[in-house]
Amino acid sequence: MEPTLNVSVIIPTWNESRLLPDTLERLKGIAPYEILIGDGGSDDDTQDIAERHGVRCIASARGRAVQMNAAAGQAQGDLLLFLHADSHLDEAGFQRMVAVMKRGRHIGGAFSLEIDSPKPALRTISRLATLRSRYLNLVYGDQGIFVLPEVFRELGGFSPLPICEDLDFFRRLKKRGRTVLLRESISTSARRWHAEGLVWTTSRNILIASLFLMGFSPTRLSKWYPPKR
């Protein structure tokens, strides 16, 4: 019998009651081993939604890195998959991840990015983001980072940064061992682009990442990126 690979899906949340139900319903269709929510003190229905879906909700201080670390500390699976509340992964992508990680050649990886919008400009941004990840090793959290739990613990989890914790973690992961960027995509909401404008949102994202890599303070950079989308 082929060995199984139990996947723990970890979702950081803060006031995500509008999109979380759809995300959890889709995940239930994929049927991972467990779903854990790391909540940063939501004052909407986020925690009630998790309870109604039979999903464990781990409370922590606010901050995506802190929330993901708290939930990961409770995970029991053989693989950790960090998924944003406004991102969706289909069955084919999930099974591809499992198949690749079962081979034992990689310690982690991420998916390609697909922004959920028919607009040609956003489709172009999606393609460029995937190329950025593949050739520059700059992977964002909305690409669904996955990692072996023992490696996650060895790396100390996500650094408690107010922003760019995903870029920091994947760069450290890449240095630790072999990673993979799957051709299968995660679909992420276009809500930031719709709310704040395509040019501004894209330019700001590039600037924040560039300044972070140059050593600028994440605390200062986080002021340009409001948490509520």
Rank of each mutant, 00 (worst) to 15 (best):
R172C: 02
L24K: 00
L213Y: 05
R191A: 15
G177H: 03
K175S: 13
A70V: 14
V7P: 01
W224M: 15
E34Y: 05
R183F: 07
T4H: 13
A70K: 05
L161K: 05
V100Q: 13
F170M: 11
H84F: 12
H84A: 14
A70D: 11
V151P: 06
V9A: 05
P162M: 01
T46P: 06
L213Q: 03
M1T: 14
R204S: 10
L20H: 03
S222G: 04
A59H: 12
I35S: 03
V9H: 00
A31M: 07
R132P: 03
T219D: 10
G93P: 01
Q74F: 12
R172I: 07
F170P: 01
Q95G: 01
Q76V: 00
L5A: 02
E16I: 06
I37M: 10
R192S: 00
S187T: 15
R64G: 15
E91P: 00
L36H: 03
R220A: 13
K223G: 06
E184N: 11
L83K: 07
H53T: 05
H88R: 12
D43Q: 10
Q67S: 14
R64S: 14
P12N: 01
M1N: 10
I208H: 07
I58Q: 06
K28C: 01
S126C: 09
L79N: 02
T23M: 13
L5R: 06
P162F: 07
K174T: 15
H53K: 02
I30F: 00
F94I: 02
R192V: 07
S185T: 15
N69T: 07
R183T: 14
N15H: 12
W14E: 10
I186H: 00
F216C: 14
V9N: 01
D168S: 08
M214I: 09
S112R: 04
T201N: 04
L207C: 08
M214P: 01
M214L: 15
P21T: 06
S203Y: 07
I206V: 15
E184K: 10
A209N: 08
W193H: 13
A110V: 01
Y140G: 15
W200A: 15
K174R: 14
